[in-house]
Simulated scan of single mutants.
Amino acid sequence: MQEYINPESLQHFIQAAFLEDIGEGDHSTLAAVPPDQQGSAQLLIKENGVIAGLELAKTIFHYHDPEMKVRLLLQDGQCVQAGDIGLLVSGKAASILTTERLVLNCMQRMSGIATKTKKLNDLIAHTGAQLLDTRKTTPNFRLLEKWAVSIGGGKNHRFALYDMIMLKDNHIDFAGGIPQAIRATHAYLSKKQLDLKIEIETRSLQEVRLVLDTGGVDIIMLDNMDPQTMKEAVGMIGKQYLTEASGGIDEETIVAVAESGVDYISVGALTHQVKSMDISLKALKGHRQTAN
């Protein structure tokens, strides 16, 4: 499990999510279901993919009602097919109903992300490139989106603005150029006594050469370059710095990019262009329900 996934971070997310969804109360459930009514339900997978969020679902159920019993039938990261059952939950029917939508919202999106991540990862498995996510995430949902990327086999890039220096094109332009941006960054880190890795974006072979002449970075980003230009850039850089390809990379282009020799490939579409997986929570009434 990733270091940013911990009891404190999960509690903060779940509290905020329930505040948004329940507010003063789940009046539909309070009105229609007796408070002592017991029930059970199963998580029904309705399409093929990679399941993600089962451990989170268990945490959500227990956070709302510690007496709920949850049995996980699958594991996060497992390939699933339509008709599979992910978990069984039993306890107060009201608790199941009130937690249902939050569990599904999280799992559907996380599973969609994990599925897309695995698909892209499989395409570049024959190379040494590693697939990275980005900060192009849903506000207040980044924690789970990045978790889903890792479940799907991807590697998390920086989590936020505070844990790494990334000098993009606008930073460079506002700073007055690549050498100025790098020098100012080192001065800032020294003054603040911070130990952060530095990545810098380049948009041409000329800019790559300028970074090599200046030095003082950890990763060179090759942004919106065609695969042949990336290959030339990787040759120029050699083993001096790690390299990251970025810029509109998708299923059609990722193989050629990976074969250029880059160390990392960042794909924003992992989190901002994803179709959620079709999953539902179905009440059980004395018999096991299956997919239609």
Rank of each mutant, 00 (worst) to 15 (best):
Q206Y: 13
I60Y: 03
G153I: 04
G216F: 14
E201G: 03
A94I: 11
A233S: 09
V50M: 12
A57Y: 08
D65L: 09
N140F: 15
I265G: 04
Q11D: 15
L212F: 11
I60M: 03
T117L: 09
N6P: 08
G215T: 08
S280D: 13
D173P: 07
Q75V: 12
N121D: 11
I182P: 11
K197P: 12
N121A: 08
E207F: 06
I113K: 02
L132D: 02
I178W: 13
M236G: 03
L132I: 06
I279G: 02
I265H: 02
M68F: 08
H27L: 14
T134G: 01
S280C: 11
I249K: 02
E3P: 14
D36V: 04
A245I: 11
C106F: 15
T115H: 06
Q11V: 08
N105W: 10
A17Y: 07
Q11G: 06
Q108F: 11
D223E: 10
A187L: 15
K285W: 15
M230E: 12
D122I: 07
A57H: 05
N224P: 11
T115D: 06
M166L: 15
K285R: 07
I198Y: 09
L281G: 00
G77P: 05
E201V: 01
P179D: 00
A160C: 12
I249A: 06
L72Q: 08
E47G: 00
T29H: 05
L87K: 00
I60E: 01
Q37W: 14
A52V: 11
M68E: 09
K58D: 14
A148H: 02
I265D: 02
E3D: 14
Q2L: 14
Q273Y: 13
Q81T: 00
T138K: 00
T127I: 11
V33H: 07
S40E: 14
G77M: 04
H157A: 04
I237M: 10
Q38I: 09
G128E: 14
K168V: 08
H64Q: 13
I45N: 02
L212Y: 10
K197A: 13
L72M: 06
Q180N: 08
L196F: 06
L284M: 10
L222Y: 05
K192R: 11
N6W: 10
W147Y: 15
V274K: 04
D133T: 05
I45L: 10
Y4V: 07
K192E: 15
A129C: 09
L97G: 05
L167R: 00
L132K: 04
I124N: 02
S246R: 01
T117H: 07
I85N: 05
F141P: 08
S9E: 15
